[in-house]
């Protein structure tokens, strides 16, 4: 089933979004496209999870948002990573590394 591909681990979405925004501010739709493209269609972010996550991050202050114009002249809400977000990204990346290492070790051991 396709669903398994999308079933991201809790917390992973934040990491992906932060990483995506690390280079350049983007609007929500661009974020979904970017993740899908970079992961070569393996990761697909669902709108229903993305926007709640974005708003939560905005509340936390890891991203800020403002209205701007998109590439093809549409009003869109752009998310920009804050200093706090940058710190969080570093943290999350570390966590992720530890997690994947741990998982890899378990797999190797078995």
């Amino acid at each position: 089933m396709r669903k398994s591909k999308n079933d991201l681990l809790q917390g992973t979405l934040t990491l992906l979004v932060l990483k995506t925004l690390a280079r350049v501010p983007m609007h929500g739709y661009r974020i979904t496209l970017h993740i899908q493209m970079v992961s070569k269609d393996i990761l697909r972010v669902e709108e229903g999870s993305l926007y709640p996550a974005l708003h939560r991050m905005e509340q936390d202050g890891s991203v800020s948002a403002e209205w701007g114009m998109s590439e093809n002249n549409r009003r869109a809400r752009y998310y920009r990573m804050s200093a706090k977000g940058r710190k969080q990204l570093a943290e999350e990346e570390k966590n992720w590394e530890r997690l994947t290492q741990a998982v890899a070790q378990v797999l190797e051991f078995a």
């Binding site: 609007h27 739709y29 926007y51 708003h55 209205w67 549409r74 809400r77």
Partner: peptide
């Protein structure tokens, strides 16, 4: 209001693509 706008803009972009 903001959320409405944001989602509409997302929809429009997806439709265009």
């Amino acid at each position: 209001h903001d959320l409405d706008d944001e989602l509409r803009s997302h929809l429009e972009m997806r439709i265009a693509d």
